[in-house]
C-alpha cells in the first residue's frame, strides 16, 4: 500500500528543503497510523477492490483478505473500521435461499404511488413505510410510481393484510400494486438456480 500517493502530501505547503519534507513525511506517518485520518488510508482503487471482495464474501478471513490484496492485516482491519465508521459498510448479511428450507416465506414487490409532502418530499412517507419490520427494502423510483417496497411475510394472507390494513390506509398513499415473487433465479448477483461447473479440458497448453 502506498501511503504517499495522497496528492496533498506530495505537494506539501512549505517545502524549504529535503530535510523539511522528510520531517513532514514523518509527521504524516504518525497520523496515518490512526484510523480516523482517512485521507491517508488505502488508495481509492484498493478500497474498491476490498469492497468488491467483501460484498461477495463478507465471511472472508482477515488474514486471507490481506494476502489477496497484498497489504498488511492491520491495514485491512483499519480500513474496514473506517468503512464502517463512514457508513459505507452498513451491515454483513447472509444470502439464504429460503426455498430450500422447510420454512414458509412469501415475498412481494409493491409499487406505491404517494403524494409527496411539502418540505419533506418523499422522506417522511418512506420512513413510515420502512419502519415496519416485515418491509425488507424501500426505494424511491423514477417512472410510473414512486416507492418500490419489498416485503417478506409468512403467507399470502399476511402480505395482503399488510397492504390493505397498513400501507393503503396511510394518508399520502394514492395506490398500490402488489406483485408476488414466484421464483428467485438470481439475487444479489448470485445465481440461485444453477451451480458452476468446470467443463474445461483438465490440462491444456
Amino acid at each position: 500500500m502506498n501511503k504517499f500517493s495522497d496528492e496533498q502530501f506530495i505537494q506539501p505547503r512549505i517545502c524549504a528543503g529535503a530535510s523539511q519534507i522528510l520531517l513532514i513525511a514523518e509527521q504524516n506517518l504518525i497520523f496515518c497510523s490512526r484510523p480516523q485520518r482517512k485521507r491517508f488510508g488505502m488508495e481509492e482503487k484498493m478500497r474498491e477492490e476490498l469492497l468488491k471482495i467483501i460484498e461477495r464474501n463478507s465471511r472472508i478471513d482477515l488474514k486471507e483478505l490481506a494476502v489477496i490484496l497484498g497489504v498488511e492485516e492491520i491495514d485491512v482491519v483499519n480500513e474496514l473500521q473506517a468503512l464502517e465508521d463512514e457508513g459505507i459498510i452498513c451491515g454483513y448479511h447472509t444470502m439464504i435461499d429460503w426455498e430450500k428450507t422447510s420454512i414458509e416465506k412469501v415475498s412481494a414487490l409493491i409499487e406505491v404511488r404517494v403524494t409527496p409532502q411539502r418540505g419533506q418530499g418523499f422522506d417522511n412517507i418512506a420512513e413510515r413505510v420502512y419502519k415496519y419490520p416485515e418491509v425488507t427494502s424501500v426505494y424511491l423510483i423514477s417512472g410510473g410510481y414512486d416507492l418500490l417496497v419489498t416485503l417478506e411475510g409468512k403467507s399470502l394472507k399476511e402480505i395482503s393484510g399488510f397492504v390493505s390494513d397498513k400501507l393503503s390506509t396511510l394518508d399520502s398513499v394514492l395506490s398500490t400494486a402488489t406483485h408476488f415473487i414466484l421464483k428467485k433465479y438470481k439475487d444479489h448477483g448470485t445465481i440461485l438456480t444453477k451451480k458452476y461447473e468446470d467443463t474445461r479440458e483438465k490440462v491444456s497448453p
Binding site: 474445461r200 479440458e201 483438465k202 490440462v203 491444456s204 497448453p205
Partner: peptide
C-alpha cells in the same frame, strides 16, 4: 500428461491454460 489426468475422475487440476 493430459492422457494420464483424464483417466482420473476425481483429479483436481491446476493444469488449464485458459
Amino acid at each position: 500428461f493430459f492422457d494420464i489426468v483424464s483417466e482420473m475422475e476425481d483429479a483436481i487440476s491446476l493444469g488449464v491454460g485458459e
